[in-house]
Design a protein around this nucleic acid. Structure first.
Length: 275
DNA sequence: CGTTGAACCTGTTTGC
DNA sequence: TGCAAACAGGTTCAAC
């Protein structure tokens, strides 16, 4: 289920616990889960985990061996998890990849993904550059105010679509788009390019505040999400509109929260978020 | 270029 | 209770 905050939690746990470990073995339960580079899987056996990065909602594991660096990119889709161990025997069923590790703090890294949206990519340096360039726009937590303003000004489409457009802004999905727009008091269907600078500034600040707070709380666990160590995120408790259609607006305006269909469900307050 | 809808999957929830 | 439909955190592709 990962959006940016959940992916960030995953990356931080991996960084703490498996950097420096050697990849002893790599078990591929479903060959079709490896979208690219399956024939190079042998190279990874014996390689050392050198670094972990998050790109948008994906996790990049950098491995080195004989002066060369290659990458394992885990795209988690809606239901993908990276786990240090099986939380329950029922998770054995949709485990598609198991990395056996040596010399780190964890003995395994397991890729679990029942719906199988999302894949694993084994890439060399140019493969990763191409992958990153075509998929990921700026990071919401790193982008400067000036660049963000440019991106919003240039976009003629709907604001919510822009926030979720990974090639422009990478990392925000349906939950956080809804939460950010509510707090910024902006209707999801507002036209991005028509926002005034002051409004864009408010959106920029709130976007960063929401994502940062969510990371601090370990992400959101609305359904399945658990971190690699098995813990749940607590930010779901702070959700104000996501999946709350029919409930009163938390701003206390007396309006009932609504749900709009199309380009995923939008949850919003029609009084606080005007078109 | 932007929008929409469908497709890719399985599991769970909802509604009759 | 039982069954079918609807829905779910994402990405991509085709069609307009």
């Amino acid at each position: 289920m990962p959006e940016l905050p959940e992916a960030e939690i995953v990356a931080r746990q991996l960084r703490k616990r498996i950097i420096g470990a050697t990849l002893k073995d790599c078990w591929v339960g479903r060959p079709d889960i490896v979208r690219q580079g399956l024939p190079t899987v042998d190279w990874y056996r014996g390689a050392r985990i050198a670094f972990i990065e998050r790109r948008g909602k994906s996790i990049v594991v950098g491995l080195t061996r004989d002066q060369e660096t290659r990458y394992l990119v885990a795209e988690l889709g809606m239901t993908g998890l990276l786990l240090f161990r099986t939380p329950h025997p029922s998770y054995l069923k949709h485990t598609h990849l198991v990395l056996s590790l040596d010399g780190g703090r964890e003995a395994e890294l397991r890729y679990w993904n029942p719906r199988r949206f999302g894949r694993v990519y084994l890439l060399d340096h140019t493969g990763l550059e191409r992958f990153v360039a075509r998929r990921f726009g700026c990071d919401p937590l790193k982008v400067s105010w000036e660049d963000f303003r440019e991106v919003v000004r240039k976009r003629r489409g709907r604001l919510k679509a822009l926030l979720m457009h990974q090639q422009v802004i990478a990392g925000i999905g349906n939950i956080y788009a809804n939460e950010i727009l509510f707090r910024a008091r902006l209707h999801p269907y507002r036209t991005a390019s028509r926002l005034r600078d002051g409004t864009i500034r408010r959106l920029y600040d709130i976007m960063r505040a929401v994502l940062t707070a969510a990371i601090r709380d370990g992400g959101s666990s609305v359904r399945d999400f658990i971190a690699p160590d098995g813990t749940k995120g607590r930010y779901s408790r702070r959700h104000r509109v996501y999946d709350k259609a029919g409930q009163p607006c938390p701003a206390g305006c007396g309006t009932t929260l609504r749900r709009l269909r199309g380009e995923r469900s939008s949850f919003y307050c029609s009084a606080c978020q005007r078109r």
